[in-house]
Amino acid sequence: MLSRVFNRGADADAGVASASVPRFDWRQYVVFIAFLVVFALFGATLYDSGFLSFNNLLNIVRQSAIIAVMAVAMTFVISAAEIDLSVGSVAGLASVTSALAVSEYGFFAGAATGLLTGLIVGSVNGALVARFNIPSFLVTLGMLGIAVGTARWITDSAPVPILDDSFNTIFGSGQIGPVPALLIWMFIVFAVGHIVLRKTAYGRRVLATGGNESAARFSGVDTRRIKFYVLLASSTVAALAGMLYAGRLQSGRYQWGEGDELSVIAAVILGGTSLFGGYGTVVGSVLGALLVGLINNGLTLMGLEFSQQQIVRGAIIILAVALARKGPGSR
C-alpha cells in the first residue's frame, strides 16, 4: 500500500489504471493533528488546573456541541460552493419562536414551530439562490438582518422563559447517565451528515456541484435543486441549534447564536472543507468545532483575558488553515 504511494512517479506510465487505495495526503488530517497537539499541550501544561478532568472535558463538548451541529450542515453549503451567513441569527429566531410556542401550546408545538422557522427561512434562502441566481452571500447576509430583526420585534427584545421541563431536558439541559443531551444531538447530526455526504448520491452531487457546477449540470445533476436543499438543510439545522440554546438556557432570546456564523465557518474550514467548494468533510468540521472549543477552554484555564483569547484563537485558526491548504493546481 505504501509502496504505491511512494512509487507514483514510477508507475505513472504503467498503463491501465487499477483500483488501488486513494493516496495519503497528510494535509487532510491537519485538523486531527492540530487537535491532538493542542490537546497534548494543554493536557501537560494545564494538568494542575484540571484540564483533563472528566467534568472539564464534558464542558468543552457542551460548549462546542451547538457550533458543531451547525458546522455539519454548513459543510454541505460550503462544499457546494455556497455560503450561509444567516445560521447564527436563524438560531436566535428559532429559539424565540419555539419558546413562544412552548409556553402557549406545549412541547410538540414548540419543537414543530422551531423547525418550521428553519424550514421557512431555508426555503426563502434556497429559492432566492437557486431560482433567481442571487449569490448566497448576499441573500443570507440580508437574511441575517431579517431574522434578528424579527426575533427582536416579536419579543420586544426581551427573553422568553421556557418553563416546560421536557423541552429543556430534551433540548440541551438533560443527560442520559453522564452523557449530556447536547452530546447526543451532536452525535446524531454528525452521523447523519457524515453518511449523507460520504455514502449517498445526494452527497456526491453536492460535491460535484461545488467542484464544477457546469460539469455537474452536463452530467444530469439538477444543480439548482442541490443548492436549494443545502440552504434549506442549513437553516433547519440552525433552527435545531437555536432550540438547543433555548433548552440549555431555558429561554428563547434573540442574542442566542449571535456571531455564531463566523465560528461555524471557521470550524468547517479548519476541518479541511474547501472554501471554493468541491471538497468537504463532516468529521473535519466537527473536529474543527471541538478544536475551537478546546482552545477557548484552555486559554480560559490559563487565565487569559477574553481579549487575549480572541487574539490567540485567531492566530491558531490562521496557522491551521495555512497548513491545511492544498498544493497549487488543485487550489
Partner: peptide, 12 residues
C-alpha cells in the same frame, strides 16, 4: 468546463 470536475478523482 463542462465535462469534468477537475479536482475530483477519475472514479468520482
Amino acid at each position: 468546463l463542462q465535462g469534468l470536475v477537475l479536482d475530483h478523482s477519475v472514479k468520482d
